[in-house]
Amino acid sequence: MTILRRSLLATPALLAAPALAQGWSPDRPIRILVPYTPGAINDTLARLIGERLGDVLGQHGLVENRPGASGSLAIAATAQAAPDGQLIAVANTANLAMNPFLFANTGYDPRQDLTPLAVCARVMNALVVPAASPFRTLAQLVEQARATPGKLSYASSGAGSSPHLAAELFKHRTGTDIAHVPYRGSAPGLADLIAGRLDFSIDNLPNTLPHVEGGRLRALAVTGSERDPAMPDVPTFQEAGFPGYEVYVWFGFVGPGRLPAAIRDRLGAAIIRIATGAETAERIRRAGATVWTRDPAQFTALLGQELEKWGTVIRAANLRIE
Rank of each mutant, 00 (worst) to 15 (best):
I3R: 15
P12V: 05
A13N: 08
L15I: 09
A17Q: 07
A17V: 01
S25M: 13
S25L: 15
R28L: 02
L33M: 03
L33K: 06
T37Q: 11
T37D: 11
P38K: 05
I41R: 14
I41P: 02
L45W: 03
A46M: 04
L48K: 02
L48P: 00
L53G: 08
G54K: 07
V56G: 05
G58F: 03
H60Q: 12
L62W: 05
N65I: 08
G71K: 08
S72F: 02
A76R: 09
A77M: 15
A94Y: 01
N95Y: 12
L96F: 03
M98R: 10
N99S: 11
N99L: 13
F103E: 12
D109G: 08
T115W: 03
P116I: 02
V119Y: 09
M124F: 05
A126H: 04
L127N: 01
A131V: 12
F135Y: 15
T137K: 13
A139H: 09
A139C: 06
L141R: 04
Q144L: 09
G150L: 07
L152D: 00
Y154K: 11
Y154A: 10
A166Y: 14
A167I: 00
A167W: 00
F170L: 13
T174A: 11
G175H: 07
D177H: 12
A179V: 14
A179E: 13
P182R: 07
P182Q: 08
Y183G: 03
Y183H: 15
R184Y: 10
A187N: 11
D192V: 00
L193N: 05
L198R: 13
P206K: 01
V212H: 00
G214Q: 06
G214T: 06
L217G: 00
R218G: 06
E226N: 10
E226K: 13
R227P: 10
P229N: 00
P229K: 00
D233Y: 02
Q238L: 04
F242W: 11
F242Q: 02
G244P: 06
V247Q: 13
V249P: 03
W250H: 05
W250A: 12
P256F: 04
D265Y: 07
A269C: 07
A269Q: 13
A270P: 04
I274W: 03
I274S: 02
G277I: 04
A278N: 05
A281H: 06
G288M: 05
G288D: 01
P296D: 02
L302N: 12
E308F: 08
G311R: 10
R315W: 03
I321Q: 07
